[in-house]
Write a protein that binds this DNA or RNA. Structure first.
Lengths: 161, 161
DNA sequence: TATTGTTATACTCTATAACTATA
DNA sequence: TATAGTTATAGAGTATAACAATA
């Protein structure tokens, strides 16, 4: 691979392969324990931890790359009784998404297994200093990517992705 | 999130978010520059670097989780003229997949942009010691996950995944 | 005019099961 | 009997464009 030193290449491949394996393990667990896709889990978690409601646009941010995709997922979650959608009194264009008790139950049902997968597959391989280093390294990568999205990506309007 | 210390949680979230952003950027680039999905790129790269041919089963390993999925992708690549499929003289059950000149051209066309995305989005944020640490950390995670697949995954027969 | 969200639609991808053929 | 690969098929997910309603 031209243009990348071997050590960089090794880091890149290790990152890609390890995260692919981890993602796959997590997806299996979420599906098996709670019949949730990873996207659905992320959306529910966002409501669960935010202690309540979010507008569709707020909910989409960073999880989904198209608005119709979010509408689709919200439709599934609503049909499953895990969220409700209602008009936003502050903005009549907006839709407020609220997690239901069943939604919280589902998260509580799925969370232990999720934590266990992450613990056993990721953290069990790592020392405490490793974990701090990982948080630092990937935190910097994340922050920079958020600040400077790749120019290859189509110039996108605010919020709509 | 019960059962995971906050520092661990921070590392996990940073890892997940950064790799999601990176994956997305890479996928955009491969699609824009060479009309390839990431799976197709991985399959082609495997043939490209292996300097030749691989059997379907060898090719699938670690890239695809079902055999029909590989048949589907191979069909697309063949239709696009990037690979050919032929009988394996050593085993009449097997199919040999060979990268074509057009396939090599496609990789050469796509690779500079790919390297540039990885360089600018990943490595530009990191020092040399960071990169070594990342390779070490994620290499260990990958190796352990390969050695001990999560028990949640359905027990699978050899080779067939 | 710009933004929020939905709908229709088309497309890509994945996985399961049934099947053929060879080891 | 087990393995290699394909096919048919069904399902999940994504994105684009057109649309209605509100800011």
């Amino acid at each position: 691979m031209p243009g990348l030193p071997p050590r960089h290449l090794g880091a890149y491949f290790a990152l890609v392969e390890a995260t692919a394996l981890l993602d796959h393990a997590v997806q299996q667990q979420l599906k098996a324990d709670g019949d949730l896709s990873y996207v659905q889990f992320q959306l529910l978690m966002r409501l669960f931890t935010a202690d309540g409601r979010r507008t569709m646009t707020e909910l989409a941010d960073g999880v989904v790359y198209s608005r119709s995709g979010l509408t689709y997922q919200a439709g599934l979650l609503e049909k499953a009784g895990l969220i409700t959608r209602s008009p936003d009194p502050r903005d009549d264009r907006a839709t407020l998404v609220t997690i239901t008790d069943a939604g919280r139950d589902r998260i509580n049902k799925v969370l232990p297994g999720h934590v266990e997968v992450v613990r056993s597959q990721l953290f069990e391989s790592l020392s405490e200093p490793d974990i701090d280093a990982l948080a630092d390294i990937m935190g910097r990568v994340r922050d920079k990517m958020r600040a400077e999205p790749p120019r290859s990506a189509a110039p996108r309007k605010k919020r709509d992705r």
